[in-house]
Nucleic acid binder design. Structure first.
Lengths: 190, 190
DNA sequence: AATAAGTTTCAGAAATTTCTGAAATCTCAA
DNA sequence: TTGAGATTTCAGAAATTTCTGAAACTTATT
């Protein structure tokens, strides 16, 4: 691997982190490399930069495509495939969230649903089912919220984010105003 | 492994899922088992239930303790350690979020910060640093939001969740009311 | 201090995952 | 149709992770 030191640290870090997520080292490194490259890279350039085998790069790129984390570009008059990452970090975040949900949350949700349909035999199973129902409920709440929020355009999302917990303050204020309005119209009626 | 079928499916699923996260099969299975058990279990009961070695159970329990995902209980007059999971699913969620942040996000943030302090030499490094700054910015926004929101009590959190994207509607309404208020006081002034 | 009941550690075995090189396949152009 | 340039596949090698059994350790009790 022969990369500028600053880029190399980044790439190596993503390689390490890879294993904490479900992805492997090479996949992480390739992603990092593409992310910081000004121009799309072709497979051989990646081989060169990271010092791993051609076939490994091929398989890893395939996996990244499965995650929708890389884009394929073609240079006119060149038969090779060139790869980049989407350049808007928010887009990347959404994709990541979507894919992780698909792989990590949805399967669990469907296993839970299936089990909850069954008839428990015995007290232990009954109790277990109750616990699973709690878990199922929580996950469902979270995914509903997520499905809802992911529709928002970047701007509103940013507003919400920067407000953070202050949103509850706004909610409180609104309640007060509504209450005030009610009182007012009540007194007007009398 | 000799468990009621309904519980067995759940435990096995968590074992499988385990590997999609960073945790291994046994750790996942033990967690699932404890989660659905009405009473705390001791190590030997887990060995019995899952059919894995005693030492494996010991190491896995240790790892779960590292994640703060299990609680140690003692029965009076019994020297053995008994384990459970917290029973409030919201507590579990918070713990999970906290620990994953610590392991997956914080290290990246600190690597990024470190790299961003360095002086880029050459155009490629300059560009890479810019990209890293974008990533750093996004992560920082997210963690600030998270640090903020995690303070909320369960009730408010639930309200926020169930509102979902509707929060923005409330925000819009509030803006209108404020605007209205401004217009009113402006006309009073004139 | 000896013992007993329990837990942890750790070196190596077993299993799994990742990576490679060689061969197969694909695809466009002549 | 052939061939050159490129990508993909896949069987096995290499590396890593997980799991086990045996030994070491801890701590309460006699």
């Amino acid at each position: 691997m022969t990369l500028p030191p600053l880029i190399q640290s980044f790439v190596l870090h993503f390689g390490e982190m890879g294993s904490r997520w479900g992805i492997n080292r090479t996949v992480g490194q390739i992603y990092a490399l593409l992310y910081v490259s000004p121009e799309p890279l072709c497979a051989d350039e990646i081989v060169e930069a990271l010092g791993v085998s051609r076939s490994n790069v091929s398989m890893s790129l395939r996996e990244l495509q499965g995650w929708n984390l890389v884009l394929l570009k073609h240079q006119p008059g060149d038969r090779r495939d060139f790869y980049t990452t989407p350049d808007d970090v928010w887009v990347i975040l959404r994709t990541l969230a979507e894919e992780r949900k698909k792989r990590e949350v949805d399967p669990t949700l469907s296993v839970l649903r299936e089990i909850l349909l069954q008839q428990p035999s015995g007290e232990n199973e009954r109790f277990a089912q109750e616990r699973m129902a709690e878990m199922h409920g929580l996950i469902e709440q979270l995914t509903t919220w997520y499905d809802d929020v992911k529709q928002l355009d970047a701007e509103r999302l940013a507003t919400l984010l920067s407000l953070g917990a202050k949103v509850t303050k706004v909610l409180d204020t609104k309640d007060k105003i509504v209450a005030l309005g009610r009182r007012r119209s009540a007194s007007e009626e009398s």
